[in-house]
Design a protein around this nucleic acid. Structure first.
Lengths: 224, 224
DNA sequence: CGACGCGTTGATATGGCTCAAGAGTGGTGG
DNA sequence: CCACCACTCTTGAGCCATATCAACGCGTCG
């Protein structure tokens, strides 16, 4: 109903143990465009992003879409509720994931340390989502985009000379659906930030932050 | 900075045991306008609403506000992240709460059953917030208000003859800040739903749902 | 080389915001 | 019990930010 991908060829399992403290985990890889899970699927596994980027989306019958989150390395996705997933999840680039069992989150019996890790990830998730609410509900388009770039820079920015460079693995439409805007508005807002010399756009998906302070000021013209 | 209430007189503790399976809990009451906690406070307790209604908010420096959620009986609030709360929380009406210790959520040692309950509450919270994203990012004002009324009706609606009645303990401004609108737009949208005979407004804060189907259709003109 | 997908830009439309004025509503004190 | 006041809600008029509709450029791939 929501997607074209068929599940069986979605993932490639490799039986590979990680740290002893987080034993029994496997690693899988997901290729761009392939779905890790769909809304409504039975949620038996929880995934920790090791490399790559995931995209979590919610889609309405009429096609309107909301990108709930992007999953970067260190993020954990697939928290179940009522035994099922509540978003779709696919990969924006080749992504490797550490697979955990739902039971590892929901019970401390098996592996207390892992249980603790997953629990803390869920709590961080709640906190992050609360931030995003403020963004969706109360920020202007520049503030939204500035916040978004700021967050990416803090998280996965790479130094480029004296500046910070951010690579955007997602198309404009995804940024729009994440921020509650249209692609046109996202594009215009990029242009606006570029013309005011706050950012430079190398390649379409490569942003250099020229004035970190100015960006931060716009992004947090509000932050509590 | 954010509020006028002083903390010390916020709560009234009663040492009262509840079910044996959830022992060691206390009940507290919070009066309307009093804060249960503020953003940034050390999060040592988690609260389960027994009666009344709570309001969770996030406020920006310039005063813009987002209502993150309303806490109705059965809801659990105060999930910590990094040891602190990430919203403000106050009461809309006299509210009684079951107090849990942060440790009961973060460790299964003390009371496994309670630990499980709190964990499931956190997972439900994540799921509920994902729904709210779609609302904030992608719905029109009528859709937002209809969804809001629909959710309240499902949750706390009371039969009134053949119809369902919903009491709104919060002012229009709170509904606006929850839905990412202004009070004026909320008011106009109420009028719109009233004029189209979908709802009736008895007293300002008492809504009767006349056409449940029509309301649901508007609310989920999108639902995935 | 052509076609398609994505991004940008332009022109116009519009939903919801802002500013402003009134109408309910509830509380308080004379 | 009523008069007043403060506050919330509603309604109106106009405006503005973002959406919509449309054209075009650019890069990629067959």
């Amino acid at each position: 109903m929501y997607v074209t991908a068929s599940l069986p060829d979605v993932v490639n399992f490799e039986t590979k143990l990680t740290k002893p403290s987080i034993a029994r985990n496997r690693t899988i890889t997901v290729k761009p465009g392939k779905h890790l899970y769909l809304e409504g699927d039975a949620a038996e596994r929880i995934y920790e992003v090791a490399s790559g980027v995931l995209r979590l989306t919610r889609i309405m019958e009429d096609g309107r879409r909301q990108v709930i989150a992007f999953g970067y390395p260190g993020d954990t996705v697939g928290f179940p509720s009522g035994g099922t997933y509540h978003t779709d999840c696919d990969a924006l680039e080749p992504t490797t994931l550490i697979v955990h069992q739902r039971a590892d989150l929901e019970s401390a019996k098996g592996n207390p340390a892992l249980h603790q890790r997953l629990l803390q990830a869920a709590l961080r998730e709640i906190s992050a989502m609360q931030d995003h609410f403020l963004m969706l509900g109360r920020k202007s388009s520049v503030e939204k985009l500035a916040s978004f770039l700021q967050a990416l820079a803090d998280r996965v920015g790479e130094p480029l000379g004296a500046f910070t460079q951010v690579t955007l693995p997602m198309p404009r439409a995804d940024i729009a659906d994440f921020l509650g805007l249209t692609t046109e508005t996202v594009s215009r807002t990029f242009t606006q930030l570029r013309k005011s010399q706050i950012i430079a756009i190398d390649h379409v998906n490569t942003v250099v932050i020229l004035k970190p302070l100015a960006l931060k000021t716009i992004a947090t013209s509000d932050e509590d």
